[in-house]
């Protein structure tokens, strides 16, 4: 069983079918790209995977590995550490999907703009805390120990992204590139095994994109991640993705290694068509 197995995923809004019969498989540890012209349905696929939309039909199977350190997590009851269980994500609420180990970033950056960098990360850690409402009210010792743990973990994460010095700044005051980085850091704070990046290089110049490419590679190794990436910037996708799926008009038109995709006739047509209509 691969880490993620999407079968015949379909989503229609009223009469419009945004995604039709899409099947995707991602093995653990892979870095896979999802590309396609504007309006091809890439973000809709992300929204389906993360529970923002409920699929009209099809299934999303996700192999969840119970983390070794995982304790007291109610969703992993009955499964021993390191054990693998297959979960159907279709129809699950977004917060629950995140708990299973999928995390995402957004195409149009959705940070908590008026909160500090630190709080942005700590909020993403919330589902891993082990104290309840009454502890919050009365501040038992558990509150202090858990908050301390959270703060340390958050600071460590921010250090990796060079944001430690800015932990008390409001997210909206960060430069654009750092906002993108913070979004990735925030997603990682949920402790995912599969990371979904929605156009992480959007709005970046070639230099920033290059730096981001390195960061993604590094993060993947460091956090032992599997990554699915939507991208418009072909140079980025071709450079780092091991496999690529191509979407056009909501349907998969090709899949394979970057070099295969580059020479695929249907892909070229889809992208050329877009350029023509843009001109």
């Amino acid at each position: 069983m691969p880490l993620l197995k999407v079968e015949k995923l379909t989503k229609s809004f009223g009469g419009l079918t945004a995604v039709s019969n899409v099947s995707i498989e991602i093995e653990k540890g892979e870095l896979v790209g999802l590309i396609g012209p504007n309006g091809a349905g890439k973000t809709t696929v992300f929204n389906l995977l993360t529970g923002v939309y409920v699929p009209s039909s099809g299934s999303i199977l996700f192999e969840k590995e119970t983390p070794i350190t995982g304790q007291g997590d109610s969703s992993s009851e009955g499964s021993a550490a390191g054990e693998k269980t297959v979960i159907e994500l279709a129809g699950m609420k977004p917060y629950n999907v995140t708990k299973q180990g999928l995390a995402r970033t957004f195409q149009n950056i959705r940070l908590f703009k008026d909160l500090t960098v630190l709080d942005n990360v700590r909020i993403a850690m919330h589902h891993n805390i082990h104290y309840g409402m009454f502890t919050s009210f009365l501040r038992f010792n558990k509150f202090y120990s858990e908050e301390k743990r959270m703060l340390e973990e958050a600071e460590q994460l921010l250090k990796i992204f060079n944001l430690e010095d800015k932990k008390n700044e409001l997210a909206k005051n960060l430069p654009y590139g750092e906002q993108r980085h913070l979004e990735i850091a925030r997603a990682l704070a949920t402790k995912p095994s599969l990371l979904l990046l929605d156009e992480p290089a959007a709005g970046m110049n070639p230099k920033e994109t290059a730096a981001l490419t390195e960061l993604i590679k590094w993060v993947r190794k460091e956090f032992d991640l599997t990554i699915l990436l939507i991208e418009h910037d072909m140079s980025l996708v071709m450079k780092i993705c091991e496999r690529i799926y191509v979407l056009d008009y909501g349907m998969l038109i090709a899949s394979g290694k970057p070099e295969e995709i580059r020479s695929n006739k249907r892909v070229i047509e889809a992208y050329l068509g877009e350029e023509n209509s843009n001109a």
Binding site: Y95, T98, F106, K113, E146
Partner: peptide, 25 residues
Amino acid sequence: RSSQGRACISIREDEIAAESMGINT
């Protein structure tokens, strides 16, 4: 000023992002 409180505040800031970060809004 607890984790639950931050979860509440995140809903005010951006409900969809909060939900995607594992908050049961």
